[in-house]
Measured scan of single mutants.
Amino acid sequence: NKASVVANQLIPINTALTLIMMKAEVVTPMGIPAEEIPKLVGMQVNRAVPLGTTLMPDKVKNYE
């Protein structure tokens, strides 16, 4: 099972992601793969992401 990116804290809307905000966890359904964490640093979320929520591609601005 592959790990996904999960919010390590509440991430407010329009916040630029940092390493400390994210952790890798095996979750269902799968979100953004954990190996993409370095790519996500500096990207902004387009909505608030509660603690423990899986980061889905549609929650990150300009994620492809």
Score class of each variant (00 low, 15 high):
1 N>V: 15
1 N>D: 15
1 N>C: 15
1 N>A: 14
1 N>Y: 13
1 N>I: 14
1 N>E: 14
1 N>H: 14
1 N>Q: 15
1 N>G: 14
2 K>E: 10
2 K>G: 15
2 K>S: 13
2 K>L: 13
2 K>Q: 14
2 K>C: 15
2 K>Y: 14
3 A>P: 12
3 A>M: 11
3 A>E: 10
4 S>I: 01
4 S>M: 03
4 S>C: 08
4 S>Q: 04
4 S>W: 00
4 S>R: 04
4 S>Y: 00
5 V>A: 08
5 V>W: 01
5 V>K: 02
5 V>N: 02
5 V>P: 01
5 V>L: 04
6 V>M: 01
6 V>P: 02
6 V>A: 03
6 V>N: 02
6 V>H: 02
6 V>L: 06
7 A>W: 01
7 A>V: 06
7 A>N: 03
7 A>T: 06
7 A>C: 06
7 A>I: 05
7 A>L: 02
7 A>Y: 02
7 A>D: 01
8 N>K: 11
8 N>L: 08
8 N>E: 04
9 Q>H: 05
9 Q>Y: 03
9 Q>M: 14
9 Q>D: 05
9 Q>E: 09
9 Q>S: 07
9 Q>L: 09
9 Q>R: 11
9 Q>N: 04
9 Q>T: 10
9 Q>G: 03
9 Q>W: 06
9 Q>K: 09
10 L>S: 13
10 L>V: 08
10 L>A: 13
10 L>K: 07
10 L>G: 07
11 I>H: 01
11 I>T: 04
11 I>L: 03
11 I>P: 02
11 I>A: 01
12 P>W: 07
12 P>T: 07
12 P>D: 07
12 P>N: 08
12 P>C: 09
13 I>D: 08
13 I>F: 06
13 I>E: 14
13 I>H: 06
13 I>P: 11
13 I>Q: 11
14 N>G: 10
14 N>T: 02
14 N>K: 06
14 N>Y: 11
15 T>F: 07
15 T>N: 04
15 T>H: 04
15 T>A: 11
15 T>D: 05
15 T>S: 09
15 T>E: 07
15 T>Y: 05
16 A>I: 14
16 A>R: 14
16 A>C: 14
16 A>Y: 15
16 A>F: 15
16 A>K: 13
16 A>H: 13
16 A>T: 13
16 A>E: 11
17 L>K: 00
17 L>P: 07
17 L>C: 06
17 L>V: 01
17 L>W: 00
17 L>E: 07
17 L>D: 07
17 L>F: 01
17 L>N: 03
18 T>R: 09
18 T>E: 11
18 T>N: 07
18 T>L: 08
18 T>F: 06
18 T>Y: 02
19 L>Y: 11
19 L>G: 07
19 L>M: 11
19 L>C: 14
19 L>Q: 08
19 L>S: 09
20 I>N: 13
20 I>F: 12
20 I>L: 12
20 I>R: 12
20 I>H: 12
20 I>K: 13
20 I>V: 14
21 M>T: 07
21 M>R: 00
21 M>C: 08
21 M>W: 04
21 M>V: 07
21 M>E: 08
22 M>D: 06
22 M>I: 07
22 M>Y: 03
22 M>L: 10
22 M>P: 02
23 K>L: 09
23 K>D: 08
23 K>Q: 08
23 K>I: 10
23 K>W: 08
24 A>V: 08
24 A>C: 08
24 A>H: 03
24 A>Q: 06
24 A>K: 06
24 A>N: 02
24 A>R: 00
25 E>W: 10
25 E>L: 13
25 E>N: 07
25 E>P: 00
25 E>I: 10
26 V>S: 06
26 V>T: 10
26 V>E: 08
26 V>W: 12
26 V>A: 07
26 V>K: 09
26 V>H: 12
26 V>L: 12
27 V>E: 04
27 V>G: 03
27 V>L: 04
27 V>R: 15
27 V>A: 04
27 V>K: 06
27 V>F: 02
28 T>M: 13
28 T>Y: 13
28 T>F: 13
28 T>G: 04
28 T>H: 13
28 T>R: 10
28 T>K: 11
29 P>A: 06
29 P>Y: 03
29 P>G: 05
29 P>K: 05
29 P>N: 04
29 P>F: 07
29 P>I: 08
29 P>S: 06
29 P>M: 03
30 M>G: 09
30 M>R: 11
30 M>D: 07
30 M>P: 14
30 M>C: 15
30 M>N: 11
30 M>F: 12
30 M>H: 12
30 M>W: 09
31 G>R: 00
31 G>L: 02
31 G>P: 02
31 G>V: 01
31 G>C: 04
32 I>C: 04
32 I>S: 04
32 I>T: 05
32 I>P: 03
32 I>D: 02
33 P>T: 06
33 P>F: 06
33 P>M: 06
33 P>D: 09
33 P>I: 05
33 P>W: 08
33 P>N: 08
34 A>S: 10
34 A>R: 00
34 A>I: 05
34 A>M: 06
35 E>R: 11
35 E>A: 13
35 E>Y: 13
35 E>W: 13
35 E>C: 15
36 E>H: 11
36 E>V: 06
36 E>N: 10
36 E>M: 13
36 E>C: 14
36 E>I: 07
37 I>G: 01
37 I>R: 02
37 I>E: 02
37 I>Y: 01
37 I>M: 12
37 I>W: 04
38 P>G: 09
38 P>I: 09
38 P>M: 09
38 P>W: 09
38 P>Y: 10
38 P>S: 10
38 P>L: 10
39 K>D: 11
39 K>E: 09
39 K>T: 11
40 L>G: 01
40 L>H: 00
40 L>S: 01
40 L>D: 02
41 V>G: 00
41 V>W: 00
41 V>N: 04
41 V>M: 02
42 G>C: 07
42 G>F: 07
42 G>P: 00
42 G>Y: 00
42 G>M: 02
42 G>S: 01
42 G>E: 03
43 M>R: 08
43 M>T: 03
43 M>H: 09
43 M>I: 06
44 Q>G: 06
44 Q>E: 14
44 Q>T: 12
44 Q>S: 10
44 Q>V: 14
45 V>Y: 00
45 V>C: 00
45 V>W: 00
46 N>F: 04
46 N>C: 14
46 N>V: 14
46 N>L: 15
46 N>W: 11
46 N>E: 07
46 N>A: 11
47 R>Q: 15
47 R>G: 14
47 R>K: 14
47 R>M: 15
47 R>N: 12
48 A>L: 11
48 A>D: 15
48 A>G: 06
48 A>Q: 14
48 A>N: 14
48 A>T: 15
49 V>E: 06
49 V>D: 06
49 V>N: 04
49 V>L: 10
49 V>C: 09
49 V>F: 06
49 V>R: 00
49 V>G: 02
50 P>C: 09
50 P>G: 08
50 P>N: 07
50 P>W: 06
50 P>L: 09
50 P>Q: 11
50 P>D: 09
51 L>E: 15
51 L>A: 15
51 L>K: 15
51 L>H: 13
52 G>T: 00
52 G>H: 05
52 G>V: 04
52 G>P: 03
52 G>K: 00
52 G>L: 06
53 T>S: 14
53 T>F: 08
53 T>A: 15
53 T>M: 12
53 T>Y: 10
53 T>D: 15
53 T>P: 04
53 T>V: 12
53 T>H: 13
53 T>G: 13
54 T>G: 02
54 T>F: 01
54 T>L: 05
54 T>P: 07
54 T>H: 01
54 T>C: 06
54 T>D: 05
55 L>W: 00
55 L>I: 13
55 L>E: 03
55 L>T: 02
55 L>G: 01
55 L>K: 01
55 L>R: 00
56 M>L: 08
56 M>K: 01
56 M>H: 10
56 M>P: 02
56 M>R: 05
56 M>I: 05
57 P>F: 01
57 P>K: 05
57 P>L: 00
57 P>T: 01
57 P>Y: 09
57 P>S: 05
58 D>I: 05
58 D>C: 12
58 D>W: 14
58 D>N: 11
58 D>M: 01
58 D>F: 10
58 D>L: 01
59 K>W: 15
59 K>Y: 15
59 K>M: 15
59 K>T: 15
59 K>R: 15
59 K>G: 15
59 K>D: 15
59 K>E: 15
59 K>A: 15
60 V>F: 05
60 V>N: 01
60 V>E: 05
60 V>G: 00
60 V>L: 12
61 K>P: 05
61 K>H: 11
61 K>V: 14
61 K>T: 11
61 K>R: 12
61 K>F: 10
61 K>Y: 10
61 K>E: 09
61 K>G: 04
61 K>W: 10
62 N>K: 07
62 N>D: 13
62 N>I: 01
62 N>W: 10
62 N>R: 07
63 Y>K: 04
63 Y>H: 04
63 Y>W: 12
63 Y>D: 04
63 Y>S: 00
63 Y>N: 04
64 E>G: 13
64 E>N: 13
64 E>I: 15
64 E>V: 15
64 E>D: 11
64 E>T: 14
